[in-house]
Design a protein around this nucleic acid. Structure first.
Length: 113
DNA sequence: TTATTGACGGGTA
DNA sequence: GTACCCGCCAATA
């Protein structure tokens, strides 16, 4: 039998990112922390990097702790990520999410409710 | 096999 | 606010 696996970790990340409500954003660290294993945010970034082929993943809603669109360069165009966020109702300026603290959506809390 | 890189985070100076 | 360092795990060369 083929090893399905697919790094269960990545699926965990995808599951959370898909659950991010529109108009909200989360951070790599928050996702890693919600996985609760002391995973490194880098792995979350790696998971997103492998997300190519899964257009269902709203990666634009995932930013770093700085609220910066760190992964915008991985979209089709360097402005694609900002466009998507603004379309979701998230104000973005200078590749940075405005009111990030208010837009912040913590899976470790929201999913726990 | 080892070394380097990577969509990061947190702490310290 | 800015700069620098360490940690963390996986993939690639």
């Amino acid at each position: 039998m083929p090893k399905k696996d697919d790094t269960n970790f990545f699926e965990q990340v995808y599951a959370i990112v898909e659950q991010v409500p529109k108009g909200r954003v989360t951070t790599y660290g928050a996702i890693a922390k919600s996985l609760g294993s002391g995973l490194s945010a880098r792995m979350v970034g790696w998971a997103m990097n492998t997300c190519h082929g899964d257009p269902r993943i709203p990666a634009q809603r995932v930013v770093n702790r700085n609220g910066q669109l760190s992964g915008k360069a991985h979209f089709g165009t360097p402005t694609r990520m900002q466009e998507l966020l603004e379309k979701d109702g998230v104000a973005v300026k200078n590749d940075t999410v405005q009111d990030f603290a208010k837009r912040f959506w913590d899976p470790a809390i929201e999913l726990a409710l």
